[in-house]
Design a protein around this nucleic acid. Structure first.
Lengths: 197, 197
DNA sequence: GTCTATAATTCGATAGAC
DNA sequence: GTCTATCGAATTATAGAC
């Protein structure tokens, strides 16, 4: 009885649409694109499959809607370089454990292996919203461009690895507390970097 | 005319089987599990689809065969800690650029998003063949267990991120030369790292 | 605004000939 | 040892009733 998206809708298109979208996100995030069927989503949302075509234009449109990420502004780039690891780690753990509903980024990450556009969309999103800000921040901290870029790429890559291990490979990364500490240390090591040494 | 697996086989079961397997690895590595059809593999191998059932028992068996990884013994764990980054980076770049045929690990990585057993298989393989050896090596280097484990996990996670970025998200990571340098530095930073500081 | 029924396709697997 | 032909299941999308 852990239904999320089927709380007694009646004849209300908006609520129905939302319910379908919630379940779609959940299932795409869990099984990827192809393994998710419109019937399964409709069943989970408690509606008839044809409503998915009606409201989202089909499975493709449903996926695009489910993969839509809202960019959350963050304050991780306010503060000294020495605290970057702590701030980033806190932000990540917060995003992971303090959130209801599925993360649209996970929809993209999980579908990236089977859908090239999903891979491209995720790559683009990360470049714009993770790598580029990191680069700017590190450059502003007074580092040479090449050094800043190398460190930013390393951190960004590490974070992708963490997400892949946790969400795709489903590895147990430990308690939120110790996980956050470990994350902070690793990030800080890369941020303090010596790449052009 | 870049066909790999269809070099004029005649009535030779072993050669046919090999040809199918080569093409299967290639396609699974490129499109994942569900998006790869037995017909497409058969066409690429220049054979009839039913031979896949005949020789591999079906699509499932074909995937398992294509995902079979042969463990290559490596000498990255011979040498001082200060050179670990260099040795690991060299080994990785070598594996990437100096290899014919598709990497079975990529088959697993790409299918991990849609097939839980593939995810589990990859996680298990990495634990046994990457994380555990790293841990052993770092412990042997005289580090406290907790510290060695934290550094090993960080390196392993970073490497997963690199593979995901490169093969799944298809990001351009630059020339082999500079890529290897960057890898070596990042790995070494994590290997040297004060996690219990 | 939503459902039932069904069309149209795709795909994996099988049977049997050569 | 391999191919042609076909079956059956699954899935997306549509038509039309309520």
């Amino acid at each position: 009885m852990a239904e999320t998206g089927a709380p007694s809708r009646g004849r209300n298109a908006a609520a129905t649409k939302r319910s379908i979208l919630d379940q779609a996100r959940r299932q795409f995030a869990q099984h990827g694109y192809r393994a998710t069927t419109v019937k399964a989503v409709a069943d989970a949302a408690g509606v008839s499959p044809n409503l998915i075509t009606r409201y989202f234009g089909g499975k493709e449109g449903l996926f695009l809607a489910a993969a839509q990420v809202e960019i959350a502004v963050d304050d991780v780039y306010d503060g000294p370089l020495a605290g970057l690891g702590d701030r980033l780690a806190a932000s990540i753990v917060q995003r992971w454990f303090g959130q209801q509903g599925e993360d649209p980024l996970l929809v993209l990450l999980r579908a990236a292996g089977e859908r090239p556009e999903a891979a491209a969309a995720l790559a683009g999103f990360l470049d714009t919203n993770s790598l580029a800000p990191l680069r700017r921040y590190l450059r502003t901290s007074g580092l040479p461009e090449a050094e800043a870029d190398a460190r930013a790429a390393a951190i960004d890559t590490f974070l992708l690895g963490v997400s892949t291990r946790r969400r795709v490979l489903r590895s147990d990364l430990g308690e939120p507390g110790s996980l956050q500490e470990w994350l902070a240390t690793a990030i800080q090591r890369l941020a303090d970097g010596g790449f052009s040494g």
